[in-house]
Amino acid sequence: MTDLIAKLPIASVTNPILLWLFKHGWEDPNWGHLPVNQVALGLVLHDLSNKLADRALQEQVQELAQKVIIENARSVAKQGT
């Protein structure tokens, strides 16, 4: 399986979550494994799903993103208390 690498001009990205991730997150190869990072990824997926033309597919992606957010947010909340 080949890796897909996409280069976007940073000026074309307006989503604040994606901007933060581009600036701080994806530089670390181990980034994304902590629950708080999974919440961020879920939020990004949910936001990006709005760009899908197929409404049924959009709903499926949003549902999966919501599950990721909910499950990991519970873990983050437990760690904070």
Rank of each mutant, 00 (worst) to 15 (best):
I10R: 12
Q60Y: 03
D3N: 10
A77H: 12
N50H: 08
Q38W: 09
I69C: 11
V39K: 06
Q38P: 00
L45W: 12
T2I: 07
A56C: 04
E59D: 14
Q79P: 05
G32S: 13
N50Y: 01
L21K: 02
N50T: 10
A53L: 06
L57A: 04
Q62H: 05
H24V: 06
A53M: 00
E27V: 08
T81H: 07
L4G: 04
V68R: 06
A6N: 05
L41A: 14
D54L: 05
W20L: 09
I70M: 06
A11Q: 10
V39M: 03
I70F: 09
Q62K: 15
W31K: 01
G25T: 07
A73I: 05
Q58Y: 02
D28F: 13
R74E: 14
L43P: 03
K51I: 04
H33Y: 07
G42V: 07
D3V: 08
V61K: 05
V13D: 03
N30K: 15
L4S: 07
L21G: 05
E71S: 07
K78P: 02
Q60C: 00
I17K: 09
A11V: 08
Q60P: 01
W20V: 11
L21T: 02
P9H: 05
P16Q: 14
S49M: 00
W31Y: 12
A56S: 00
K67V: 14
T14Y: 06
A6H: 14
H24N: 14
A40Y: 02
L19C: 03
V36K: 12
T14G: 03
I17C: 01
I5A: 03
N30M: 10
N50D: 12
L57H: 00
K78L: 12
A53W: 02
A65R: 11
A77M: 11
K78T: 00
D47L: 09
K7A: 08
T14C: 03
Q38N: 00
A40V: 15
N50I: 01
A11G: 04
Q58I: 03
P16N: 11
L21S: 01
A40C: 15
G32E: 11
A56R: 03
L45H: 15
S75R: 14
L64M: 12
